[in-house]
Design a protein around this nucleic acid. Sequence first.
DNA 1: ATATAAGTTGACCATCTGGTCTAGTTTTTG
DNA 2: CAAAAACTAGACCAGATGGTCAACTTATAT
Lengths: 214, 214
Amino acid sequence: MTAQKTNKEGRIGAQNRARILAAAEQEFALHGYNGTRLQNVADRAQLPKTNILYYFKSKEGLYLAVLEQILTLWNSAFDVATVDDDPALVLANYVAEKMEISRTKPEASKIYALEIINGAPNLSKFYKEQHVDWMDGRVALLQAWIDQGKLSVKDPYYLLFNIWACSQHYADFQAQIAALRGKGMDKQDFSDATKALIHMILSGCGLSVPDKFK
Amino acid sequence: MTAQKTNKEGRIGAQNRARILAAAEQEFALHGYNGTRLQNVADRAQLPKTNILYYFKSKEGLYLAVLEQILTLWNSAFDVATVDDDPALVLANYVAEKMEISRTKPEASKIYALEIINGAPNLSKFYKEQHVDWMDGRVALLQAWIDQGKLSVKDPYYLLFNIWACSQHYADFQAQIAALRGKGMDKQDFSDATKALIHMILSGCGLSVPDKFK
DNA sequence: ATATAAGTTGACCATCTGGTCTAGTTTTTG
DNA sequence: CAAAAACTAGACCAGATGGTCAACTTATAT
């Protein structure tokens, strides 16, 4: 071997990639995959369109990169909770985390929603299997709490679905929410909505709300 | 004036319109507005593409017709509930209605969700105003129940948002739900999910579940 | 310093797709 | 039975858009 391969990506490259990814996230969230124009992504990133194709092989490649970045957001303390933890605290924290993502990263939530609504054609088999494994583990944990009499729900699946549904709704449907309320949700509104949601979820499980979330 | 204008639409026309609308609903739900090809709608409706443009002036016209049809689904007994009605019964019925729509008309829910996620660019000003009026009225009703001590929630808005979020989730995210459960939701599963949701919603409001929904 | 890799850029193309045009056929109506 | 309206349908086009190409400039490493 002769000269060692350089890092294959200079500082400029890393910076531009990030710029493009951020711009693409906005555009995909706003217009969906098919509605997004590479030219618009380029304009938003203030780079010529050709550069996007230089860094990402194709529109699909760009989308997959955005999607991959989004999936890392889903990580949570709930992932590693055990049967010895307090269900009320764990669930309340999980809801609060989810709501915080909806507040700070609504674009990510929207892109994910669009992907699922369209039948998840671009989520890798690997991710799907991993997600099923995660779900199995969390359902088992919830079931253990149920068996211990710490949690009162019939089916753990529906509990998780409802948590996701409500928390993501505040990101995905923000246009409707703002229209119906007459104003957008500010930080305080999110705090109130989070408390309301935690109250509802925990009440439904026969748990009382920890002071921290009252 | 000479001959009176005929009905402007024969029997064939009405039938074809319905066929096209049904096909378009499927396609729009599956691929979104931009991802939908008129040719695919035509194939699904088993009609030549040109016919679609004949009955609906343009792709946008077709989409608007589909959307309009969908909005009529949203009508509910809750719309006309009064302060003298029983909150538990009214809310439980409302949730059950919403879940039934998710079960029987998931495409409609998906198209609506796609529309809102993208900022509701095609919902008419008229519809939006009407929706705000509806919301104001329903919020007032909920507030009246709260004032009477029949209902225990801090903010009626979040209650309604959470009801919509959960019920629509079972339609919009059916791909994810089926993947995580290992099988799709059948009628019995929907019945269970509906009971779980009603239990959660009513618990969160300090209401007990009517026998009918247990 | 200079060679090599990384990054930039405008010109250009192939294809796809919504929509038009025209010419015809069927249905309805008086 | 005509005449008019409703409906069918293939051929075709204009514009948009993802993507390629080749030439160029800048950065990096020895």
